Amino acid sequence: MKLEWIKSSYSTSSGPDCVEVATPDESHVFVRDSKNPTGPRLDLTSAAWSAFLPYAVEH
């Protein structure tokens, strides 16, 4: 399966925080470090991702 990765709007090309997400279907969200695209990634349920987002946006 080929994933379409989208860089976070909070990430910049020159900044240290480079997060990308991919949503292969309605029930999963993958998260990875854009500086290490072949490295590990998180596989989250959509519910877990939705619960996490309010905390991520606050900080």
Score class of each variant (00 low, 15 high):
Ala48Gly: 13
Tyr55Ile: 15
Ser50Tyr: 03
Glu26Asn: 07
Ser14Lys: 03
Trp49Gly: 00
Lys7Cys: 01
Ser11Asn: 07
Ser27Phe: 15
Asp17Phe: 02
Val29Ile: 07
Leu42Lys: 03
Ser8Arg: 01
Ser11Val: 02
Tyr55Met: 13
Val31Arg: 03
Val57Glu: 15
Val29Ala: 02
Val57Asp: 10
Trp5Pro: 08
Thr12Glu: 12
Ser14Phe: 14
Val19Thr: 04
Ile6Glu: 11
Val57Leu: 14
Met1Glu: 15
Thr23Ser: 06
Ser34Gly: 15
Asp33Glu: 09
Leu53Cys: 07
Lys2Trp: 11
Asp17Ser: 09
Ser13Gln: 07
Ser34Asp: 05
Ala22Val: 09
Lys2Gly: 02
Thr12Pro: 05
Ala22His: 10
Trp5Val: 08
Ser50Ile: 01
Phe52Pro: 02
Thr23Lys: 06
Ser8Val: 00
Ser13Asp: 09
Leu42Asp: 02
Thr38Tyr: 04
Ser11Leu: 01
Cys18Trp: 00
Asp43Cys: 01
Pro54Leu: 02
Tyr10Thr: 09
Pro24Phe: 08
Thr12Val: 08
Ala51Ser: 14
Thr45Asp: 08
Gly39Lys: 11
His59Lys: 12
Pro37Arg: 04
Thr12Arg: 03
Asn36His: 10
Val57Gln: 11
Leu53Trp: 12
Pro24Ile: 13
Pro37Ser: 08
Thr12Lys: 14
Thr23Tyr: 08
Asp25Arg: 07
Pro37Glu: 06
Pro24Thr: 02
Val29Cys: 02
Ser9Asp: 01
Ser9Tyr: 00
Asp25Pro: 04
Pro37Ile: 06
Gly39Gln: 02
Ala51Phe: 09
Asp17Val: 02
Ser14Trp: 08
Lys2Cys: 14
Gly15Pro: 08
Asp43Ser: 15
Val21Lys: 00
Gly39Thr: 14
Asn36Asp: 12
His59Glu: 10
Thr12Ala: 10
Ala51His: 13
Ser27His: 13
Ile6Thr: 12
Leu42Met: 14
Leu42Ser: 14
Phe52Ile: 01
Met1Cys: 07
Ser27Tyr: 13
Val21Phe: 01
Ser14Cys: 06
Ala56Asp: 06
Ala51Val: 09
Met1Ile: 08
Asn36Gln: 03
Asp43His: 05
Arg41Lys: 10
Phe52Cys: 05
Ala47Asn: 06
Asp43Phe: 11
Glu58Phe: 03
Cys18Phe: 01
Leu42Arg: 11
His28Asn: 05
Ala51Arg: 11
Asp25Ser: 09
Val19His: 07
Ser9Ile: 00
Asn36Ile: 12
Val21His: 00
Val31Met: 14
Glu20Pro: 10
Asp17Arg: 05
Cys18Tyr: 00
Ser14Ile: 15
Ser9Gln: 00
Tyr10Trp: 13
Arg32Met: 13
Glu4Pro: 08
Val57Thr: 05
Tyr55His: 10
Pro54Lys: 03
Ala22Gly: 09
Lys35Trp: 06
